[in-house]
């Protein structure tokens, strides 16, 4: 469990313009939480507090019971909470895929035999085993990002924080990553915190937190969040495309549900609408 208690943070000593302003949230074990917010809302800054890359200027962050501000807990905290960043190029250290996946394990002092086994399993989990000996710069963006994720899961974290992992990828790369993230969460039981600005991605989480100017302004399940269309638009955010479609259909006077956020639901609704009309 990750718990932020009244976290305030500012990059300068001046606390009058905080990046994070009295944020308190709890991420339950095994959950899939998406954090939404436009640029500068503090979502990435919050994420960096979850594995002690940044320490709160005020308040506390507890990661599985440990205070992140304690120096001697640092490695343990980072071992439990892995982090994946936006640019896959800037997080790959080695020139061969499997050696890069092993990087974290090398730092933790894992014996070589065990390392080989864990690297193999991690690459399996992200379906990149066939590229174990490849050079990262020859991979596609989505593949590189999956290598970065493998590097984290090889360390067997209990939670993975992904900071806009799909922002630099093409649509097929985005789909690959979303699929991988879901496997991590559903099959491996890893807690996932996904920072994103894609509404469709956020819709796939169990819980959505919306941030604005350093504050948590909404915190609910995706259905409840995306039915608050006007509020989201006012925050410079959006709703998933299907939700927008439903909204426009309603404006045209059609009777469709407004709480639709997934493509499947949308199709069902449209089909039943058409059937109703032509029966």
């Amino acid at each position: 469990m990750i718990k932020a208690e009244n976290v305030t943070f500012s990059y300068s000593d001046d606390l009058s313009v905080p990046v994070l302003d009295n944020v308190s949230i709890t991420v339950a074990d095994g959950s899939f939480v998406a954090v939404l917010g436009h640029n500068g809302s503090g979502k990435s800054t919050l994420a960096k507090h979850f594995n002690a890359i940044l320490l709160p200027s005020g308040g506390k962050v507890y990661v599985f019971g440990q205070d992140t501000a304690k120096k001697n807990a640092l490695l343990d905290v980072r071992k439990k909470v892995g982090m994946v960043f936006q640019n896959p190029d800037n997080q790959i250290v080695a020139t061969v895929v499997e050696e890069d996946v092993a990087f974290g394990l090398e730092n933790l002092g894992v014996p070589s035999d065990e390392m080989h086994e864990r690297v193999g399993k991690a690459l399996d989990a992200v379906q990149m085993s066939e590229f174990a000996k490849s050079a990262p710069h020859n991979l596609s963006g989505g593949q590189k990002q999956r290598v970065a994720i493998a590097g984290i899961i090889a360390m067997r974290p209990r939670c993975i924080v992904l900071d806009e992992p799909t922002a630099m990828l093409d649509p097929s790369g985005r789909r690959e990553i979303m699929k991988t993230i879901k496997t991590l969460n559903k099959d491996m039981g890893i807690t996932v915190v996904l920072i994103t600005h894609y509404m469709d991605e956020a819709a796939q989480a169990d819980r959505v937190i919306v941030m604005d100017s350093g504050k948590v302004c909404m915190d609910d399940c995706p259905k409840n969040i995306f039915t608050r269309r006007e509020e989201l638009l006012a925050l410079g955010l959006d709703v998933p495309q299907v939700t927008e479609l439903m909204h426009r259909l309603r404006e045209k006077g059609l009777r469709v549900r407004e709480d639709i956020i997934y493509t499947d639901e949308c199709i069902e609704e449209l089909v039943s609408l058409l059937e109703e009309k032509y029966d």
Binding site: K48, N51, I53, L75, R78, K79, G82, M83, F85, N87, N90, Q91, V93, F103, G104, N107, L108, A148, G151, I152, M155
Partner: peptide, 10 residues
């Protein structure tokens, strides 16, 4: 960014 990513990997 790389330095941060490396720190994240202990």
């Amino acid at each position: 960014e790389l330095a941060t990513a490396m720190e994240c990997r202990c």
